[in-house]
């Protein structure tokens, strides 16, 4: 069994953010920092205390980001980056969402992308009536080798079939178009 001393998530401390849609307030006022974790033990304590993704109301988001990076395009560590986007069908909320989101979190805290893990900024979950979304955000959309490595590992870890195609979109493109129209810069 694992030992008793805490297992550090070196080099990263991770911050969990929660967004609850309240149209009477500005977007940033709806974004709340929940907690920061820097050990495996703290991560599970946090995970055990928050609602499962599938239990959140529509319009809510979770985001897990490296400490010091805010979960928004405007952050200097995000603005040149982009995201690997997983769009789920409505019925997958009950069958798949919790597993896929947990797997995403484990990819992040486990630094699963080898040396390219430093390119990862965080991950975002959007719970939406029209279909939930999960995305892994990376720092530099022009880093083709890093982005593709992360995409391939991520797709494999999610257990997606080879027939399923996932796309990477630069935030700069997403910001100027509606999500469904932003073009894929890379696919795996």
């Amino acid at each position: 069994p694992p030992g008793h001393s805490p297992h550090s998530l070196t080099p990263s401390r991770w911050a969990l953010w929660f967004f609850k849609n309240d149209r009477s307030r500005a977007w940033q006022d709806n974004l709340h920092l929940v907690t920061k974790v820097d050990t495996v033990e703290d991560f599970w304590a946090m995970y055990g205390h928050i609602q499962l993704a599938s239990k959140l109301s529509s319009g809510c988001d979770y985001a897990l980001f490296k400490d010091g990076i805010e979960p928004m395009w405007e952050d200097s560590k995000n603005k040149r980056g982009g995201r690997w986007l997983i769009s789920l069908a409505k019925q997958q909320r009950h069958s798949e969402l919790d597993r896929l989101w947990l797997e995403t979190l484990l990819c992040l805290i486990g630094e699963s992308f080898a040396e390219h893990s430093r390119e990862v900024c965080g991950a975002v979950l959007n719970v939406r009536t029209k279909g939930d979304k999960i995305a892994v955000w990376t720092r530099e959309a022009e880093n083709q080798a890093g982005v593709l490595h992360i995409g391939r590992i991520y797709k494999e870890r999610l257990g997606l079939s080879t027939k399923t195609i996932i796309g990477y979109q630069a935030h700069a493109d997403t910001a100027t178009k509606s999500n469904s129209l932003a073009k894929n810069k890379f696919v795996v």
Binding site: P1, P2, H4, H7, S8, L9, T10, P11, V40, E41, F43, W44, A45, Y47, E103, L106, I109, G110, E111, S112, A114, S117, R157
Partner: peptide
């Protein structure tokens, strides 16, 4: 240093009681 944890290792901790 950099630490990489595989998913099975991380999952082993999920239901461990917090021990002080």
């Amino acid at each position: 240093g950099k630490k990489q944890y595989d998913r099975e290792f991380l999952l082993d901790f999920q239901f461990m009681p917090a021990c002080i």
